[in-house]
Design a protein around this nucleic acid. Structure first.
Lengths: 242, 242
DNA sequence: CGAGTGATTGACGCAGATCAAGCGAAGTGG
DNA sequence: CCACTTCGCTTGATCTGCGTCAATCACTCG
């Protein structure tokens, strides 16, 4: 185990809920080790169970569902601090897949320890529920975006979400740029848009000086405009960490 | 309090996880009473908190988000046995609204009791997380449907989901018909389709002898066809109950 | 009996899908 | 070290699924 929870770099970041000493110890006890995964490797697969649950320590991933037709819906982009595999831990098996988009380092927890964790650290158990509820909330917002908003607003919303997550995780450079390991196709699949139309919409936003996305690099120039176009307030929220 | 948890009609139904005697008692202790709500009345409102959390005992509801543009995304249709207001209980406030679609009877729980519940009934706390994960799973599937499938498949998927939920809740009549308090507009808003196109798609499915939806009555004639058109296996899943 | 709501159907137009072609960067093997 | 492939981005042309508008009909309700 490389990183003791006490020294977890994520805890230090603003935007994450604080730990008590006892909670820290409980989490530490639960942690089974770390896992390093190469970019492009599957972490969890739809339809199969998993003995482990993870928290992302470093790197970024891709959560998605594949349909019979071959179409793919991207459900989200796991960032450092995100929980991965809750479904496998709580239900029988995963209803979506997760791949590593960059090389990733994951904190490994054992699914079998979860009941004990719930017994001995109910406050933290509450946080697990909190995370699930937060995810539910996010998916609801995404659903509303995909179902009701035109392409321009969808793209703006997606950029804003990525920006906020990058900010919280400390991945945002001074100049407002983030390195993202996602293709425009990935991004489009998250928004229910074709790759071509995603590109054209991004090009338009770029011409308007709102934001740039090319070659795995996103740069937001006018955050207020992004918020306006997407039809959302630019306010993020505090998140729990396990 | 009208119905003691011991006599809860939902527990008896197949498809719900069984309770131990002790769990039953804990749940009973948590239950604050029952609430009867008229059709069309708001239960919870987006953006506001709530002191209470509910389980639906009778009746059906509507979960939705309203966008700035006036558009509405329906996120789901709460049926008997469904949990309502988890977000308000766990996070600060709701990120969507819930209305009663019929007259409803709700089991009332107090948000403030939840931490104690987590301490004293960790197995049930686990189930709360299970419910949240299940909801997350459902929303993921809905997102994939809205984002990737054409109107025909979306409608078929929606019908299938409603059928499954009605079945589990025992609301499905012998002849395969269900009385639903939803308009075609509600249904369309759940699938990201306009009311007109929803109607036309339903008309086509009706002509083909697959299913009928008119005037608050759904009747599925060919379940296999629905599954095929929607591109999903017709298998439901067992659910937890609080 | 008028007013409002939901279902239904046809006509029309557009946002976004699909098809297609070209480009640069990165990898790969001979 | 250079052909050759692959992959992602880009842009234009064309097509179509679905949204929008609009009108009618059936019901329910005050």
């Amino acid at each position: 185990m490389k990183t003791p929870c006490r020294d977890c770099p994520l805890r230090a970041r603003p935007g994450f809920a604080p730990f008590t000493a006892h909670e820290l110890e409980m989490t530490q006890q639960l942690k089974r080790g770390e896992l390093r995964i190469d970019a492009g490797t599957p972490i969890l697969t739809e339809g199969s169970g998993s003995r482990q649950v993870y928290t992302v320590l470093q790197g970024m991933g891709l959560r998605y569902k594949t349909l019979e037709t071959g179409a793919r819906q991207v459900l989200g982009f796991p960032f450092p601090g995100d929980f991965v595999g809750l479904q496998a831990a709580v239900m029988e098996d995963m209803t979506h897949s997760v791949d590593a988009a960059t090389e990733m380092v994951l904190c490994v927890f054992d699914r079998a320890d979860l009941p004990q964790f719930y017994r001995e650290a109910p406050e933290r158990a509450f946080d697990v529920t909190w995370i699930a509820a937060e995810e539910e909330s996010f998916l609801g917002e995404a659903m509303a975006t995909i179902g009701q908003r035109p392409a321009r607003a969808r793209v703006a919303w997606g950029l804003l979400k990525l920006l906020q997550r990058a900010e919280i995780s400390g991945l945002l450079a001074e100049d407002g740029a983030v390195a993202l390991p996602y293709s425009q196709r990935d991004f489009g699949d998250a928004l229910g848009l074709s790759a071509v139309h995603t590109n054209k919409t991004l090009a338009r936003l770029r011409d308007e000086g709102v934001a740039t996305w090319q070659g795995g690099r996103m740069e937001v120039h006018d955050r207020a405009a992004l918020a306006r176009i997407s039809g959302t307030p630019p306010t993020p929220r505090r998140r729990a960490l396990i």
